[in-house]
């Protein structure tokens, strides 16, 4: 069984990976780190470089967790991308980072995290970025 961790190169994403790896060790499950860029533009700042990916996997190894990095493209349906991965890998849990956003910001930009919370077919663990990151 597998834990899916939504990862973006932000403090929230780091917090999600931390929580996901802890959860993986606790449950003894495999972790898939999902770094999904938006399809279309030649460059997406959400996509992490190969070096950053290797670094994430190194962190997982140190934590004693069997981890894998996936970078599927998504259109305007990130929850769907997660659902596909859940079906494919037998996902049991999604871990995502939440970020505070004002009401207006949420209305204009929408919130992918919120949609995952609402639409996911498995339990979702949502974490916040620590105010001051102690570890890492």
């Amino acid at each position: 069984m597998t834990i899916l961790v939504g990862y973006l190169p932000t403090p929230e994403g780091e917090a999600a990976v931390d929580a996901g790896l802890r959860e993986g060790r606790l449950r003894g499950e495999r972790v898939i780190i999902v770094n999904s860029p938006r399809r279309g533009a030649p460059v997406d700042e959400r996509k992490i470089s190969d070096a950053a990916g290797t670094e994430l996997l190194r962190r997982a190894r140190e934590a004693g967790v069997d981890a894998e990095l996936r970078q599927p493209l998504h259109d305007d349906d990130l929850p769907g991308t997660f659902e596909e991965l859940i079906r494919e890998c037998g996902g049991t849990l999604i871990v995502i980072g939440l970020r505070h956003r004002s009401l207006v910001g949420k209305f204009i930009l929408g919130s992918e995290a919120q949609r995952i919370l609402m639409e996911a077919s498995v339990p979702v663990l949502s974490v916040k970025a620590p105010a001051v990151r102690a570890e890492l």
Binding site: P37, R38, R39, G40, A41, P42, V43, D44, E45, K47, I48, S49, A52, L73
Partner: peptide, 9 residues
């Protein structure tokens, strides 16, 4: 088809 997205260089 835009199947290639790069990370910022």
């Amino acid at each position: 088809r835009h199947n290639q997205v790069h990370s910022p260089a």
